[in-house]
Design a protein around this nucleic acid. Structure first.
Length: 560
RNA sequence: GGGCCUGUAGCCUAGCCUGGAUAGGGUGUUGGACUUCUAAUCCAAAGACCGUGGGUUCAAAUCCCACCAGGUCCGCCA
């Protein structure tokens, strides 16, 4: 609705300018005045016309104001210096808003395009750690936003089963008899073996030859026993990872194994298409200096085996065929590789993916590494966050059963984990500190709390949707602010979907909950003479809060 | 050395694409509000030469250039 308000203002300004016989080329940009007393929406068009008309902006603003026909939902327009400020007619607008918001609020019209969104795709050589977390949460939240914005989205996890990492584990299990510890969650047990193998490798780098050999054999695909042992490692580890993803409210549509593309011949097909552009020395490579990339892309090793990039090329060819948009979530360290991949895809007649990059999450003492066994696992992070929430719940002594406490603590804990990641722009590096990550006040919990408060109010009053509620009084400031925030929801989703940036929504949800909490604190709902309207407003807030949280992959408890 | 990213109160962060009014939040600090729909809340105070220097502009956190600091990439790893 907010964008509709803006559109109406834009049109009325254009109309005024036409009356004044002024033509403009640029788009009319609207903004929000710094203070509600100055109005709700404003235009600074007078500035840009000043040079052209050789008049002072103040004069121009005044003149435009005098020609303006007040749009619907507005009650006043005035100038303040060079600014033209519009005031919303809240009585009218609020009536419209509260009746407009229903449980599908924020959904945009269906789009024709399907998006194949690849995210997480962590190597199955250990549990997900906090570094992977950013990929998973950014990816899943983006999926939710894009779906809400009308796209058909399929999420895929690209399973890297042909990597050196897996070969190392297979090798270590055979050579040293390392076994997965039954007492541990399986992905953690795999990670532990991986760590031990690497210690052996470090002691004796000669072993690397044995690993190359294993890798070569796996690629040949003749040794069924070897294939089985690769699959055992990968499947086991993946089981653990899937559990973690489930805990995070993430469901993948498909797990696509890297080896598929080698075994079904599509790797060879891509290489054929690229053949005119490649050079064969001892390796097969694609030179890219022409395209401003200094580093050539190696497609086959001198021993004839393929590389990650080769198989990824085949995977992206599959994406080209099976979707309209390929969207990848990648760490910023993959920027060069992604550029090479994109060029190779275009040369082979395929589509380059859109990529959302994010910077690393490091520990204060340095980067995380599964190989060195230095990392904080996502499981541990969730556990700590949940424990923190549980302590808080117990302290409030709310007469809940044990299972209710467990359940709500989990919802709050996971929510805070997701919120923590979503709140920070992806291009910003994060140094992970427990005290910051576990600090929920004013974060996710305050949003969930606002939602729970709304639910409680509605249940206490036996609220049952009223038809055609009318606002027939001068609203309090807190109500106006809340209404305005509610109306911005759709525009935020549109923007987040378009920019592929979820964190606008995080910011919005926080602002909305703050507006609701202020309203709640300052205005009586039940028993007030405006009870009917206010309850409807509470319900509209409840829905919008719930939908916003849902898009962030966060559950909204009805009490806490 | 070259490419990319980041630099906003003690700490964390939004705003930068698309330049406009007093740089928005949070945390921490100080003070205040539960006989009133849940105080994970609300109110108030203090705290910012927007990394530095130049430029463009009526107007720069925002655009351009240079520099400084941190991160990252430049594997026949993934």
């Amino acid at each position: 609705m907010y964008s509709k308000l803006k559109k109406e203002i834009t049109e009325s300004i254009e109309e005024a300018l036409t009356k004044m016989r002024i033509k403009i080329d640029e788009e009319i940009v609207l903004e929000e005045p710094p203070n509600p007393e100055m109005g709700d929406i404003s235009s600074n068009i007078a500035f840009s016309l000043a040079g052209k008309l050789k008049k002072s902006p103040v004069e121009i603003a005044e003149e435009i104001k005098n020609h303006i026909k007040l749009p619907l939902y507005f009650e006043k327009v005035e100038t303040k210096g060079p600014y033209i400020n519009f005031f919303i007619n809240y009585t009218l607008f609020s009536t419209k808003m509260v009746n407009y918001i229903d449980k599908r609020y924020g959904e945009l019209p269906e789009q024709d395009e399907t998006i194949l969104l690849e995210h997480t795709s962590a190597n199955p050589n250990g549990p997900l750690h906090v570094g992977h977390l950013r990929n998973a949460i950014l990816g899943d939240s983006l999926k939710r936003v894009l779906q809400h914005a009308g796209y058909k989205v399929e999420s895929q996890y690209y399973v890297n089963d042909m990597g050196r990492q897996i070969a190392i584990i297979v090798w270590g299990r055979k050579k040293f008899g390392f076994e997965f510890d039954d007492h541990k969650k399986i992905d953690h047990a795999v990670g532990e073996v991986y760590f031990k193998c690497n210690q052996e490798l470090e002691k004796n780098p000669e072993y690397n030859k044995e690993i190359d050999e294993i890798l070569h054999k796996y690629e040949d695909g003749d040794d069924q026993k070897l294939i089985d042992s690769f699959e055992l490692v990968v499947e086991n580890c993946l089981d653990g990872i899937k559990q973690t993803l489930k805990d995070l409210n993430i469901r993948m549509n498909l797990y696509k194994w890297e080896s598929t593309f080698l075994r079904n011949g599509s790797v060879d097909k891509v290489l054929e298409k690229l053949q005119p552009f490649t050079i064969k020395r001892d390796v097969l490579y694609l030179p890219l200096e022409k395209y401003d990339v200094d580093k050539e892309l190696v497609l086959r090793r001198s021993n004839g085996t393929s590389l990650y990039a080769t198989r990824d090329l085949a995977y992206h060819q599959y994406k080209t065929k099976n979707s309209d948009i390929s969207l990848d979530i990648l760490g910023a360290d993959h920027k060069l590789a992604a550029k090479q991949l994109s060029l190779a895809l275009e040369l082979s007649g395929n589509r380059a993916p859109e990529v959302v990059f994010y910077e690393f999450i490091n520990l204060p003492e340095g980067s995380m590494s599964t190989r060195r066994g230095v990392f904080i696992s996502v499981d541990e992070f969730i556990e700590q966050a949940t424990q923190h929430a549980k302590d808080e719940l117990l302290e409030r002594d709310m007469d809940l059963t044990d299972s209710e406490i467990e359940n709500i603590a989990q919802i709050i804990g996971v929510g805070s984990v997701r919120f923590y990641i979503n709140q920070i722009s992806p291009e910003k590096p994060i140094t992970f500190k427990w005290e910051e990550a576990l600090n929920f006040e004013r974060g996710c919990a305050s949003i969930q709390y606002a939602h729970a408060r709304a639910c409680k109010l509605l249940s206490k009053s036996d609220f049952d949707e009223y038809d055609d509620v009318k606002c027939d009084y001068e609203l309090e400031n807190e109500e106006k602010v809340l209404i305005k925030e509610l109306s911005r929801f759709t525009e935020i989703i549109r923007q987040a979907a378009k920019e592929r940036r979820v964190h606008h929504l995080t910011e919005y949800t926080l602002t909305l909950s703050k507006a609701f909490n202020k309203f709640y604190k300052s205005q009586q709902v039940i028993g007030s003479e405006h009870e009917q309207f206010r309850l409807t407003l509470v319900d509209a807030s409840r829905i919008t809060l719930k939908n916003s949280l849902k898009l962030l992959g966060i559950k909204a408890p009805e009490f806490m």
